[in-house]
């Protein structure tokens, strides 16, 4: 009888642990998970319009709780994350990139750099985002690099970021954007300009 109880206890504990592990893995909550797939892929910018709302799948909700807590629902803001450059290489502070785009279909927008832990990287450059208030009405560009450009280029600092990602926020998106984001949004390009090390 005791042996039978022990077998059930062991299989139960193993089963619960395996189940919890698969849930965390499928939600992207395991350490070091930098998954990029999402419902919407705008030339490498990944997003999901159910983010922040009760309509989100339980897997997305768990992932957003870890990597985007307190994200707004789509009526107020939509979010896209880019973790690779235009050639598909992971973004790294070892490289310099040119971020370029045009007008966005939103009341306000910004691009912000975060490290692999989803926090602002530890530097004091006060240059971790670029937003609509500095972009003007037409085409715009910004350099993403660990050191400030010599010219007067707009700059997003990647100093101490390691491997990082960029988050595009579109606040007050218009109805057309919510209905057909792939058609309404011209996603910014992320061109790798140079590297001090080969991208990994």
């Amino acid at each position: 009888m005791l042996k039978r109880i022990a077998i059930y206890a062991l299989t139960g504990i193993f089963g619960l642990g395996l189940g919890a592990y698969t849930a965390l893995a499928m939600s992207g909550l395991l350490p070091g998970d930098r998954r990029a797939e999402a419902a919407i892929d705008l030339d490498g910018w990944m997003g999901d319009l159910t983010q922040g709302s009760a309509d989100a799948s339980p897997y997305l909700r768990a992932r957003i709780a870890r990597h985007g807590l307190l994200a707004l629902a789509k009526s107020e803001a939509i979010y896209f994350i880019r973790a690779t450059d235009d050639t598909g290489e992971v973004l790294s502070e070892d490289c310099t990139y040119r971020l370029a785009g045009g007008p966005m279909p939103a009341g306000w927008w910004s691009v912000t750099l975060y490290n692999a832990d989803s926090f602002l990287p530890d530097n004091t450059d006060q240059a971790l985002s670029f937003d609509a208030s500095r972009a003007g009405d037409g085409a715009w560009s910004a350099i993403v690099s660990p050191v400030r450009p010599d010219d007067q280029s707009n700059w997003i600092s990647s100093r101490n970021a390691g491997q990082f990602d960029l988050t595009l926020r579109l606040y007050m998106p218009d109805a057309e954007t919510l209905n057909a984001p792939a058609q309404a949004i011209t996603a910014p390009s992320v061109e790798r300009v140079s590297c001090t090390k080969e991208p990994s």
Partner: peptide, 20 residues
């Protein structure tokens, strides 16, 4: 084994829905 399989499902959804 059947009991273990049920526990996998229980553990999966318990972790999934409690994580947020």
């Amino acid at each position: 084994l059947l009991f273990g399989a049920v526990m996998v499902v229980v553990g999966h959804f318990a972790a999934l829905y409690s994580a947020p």
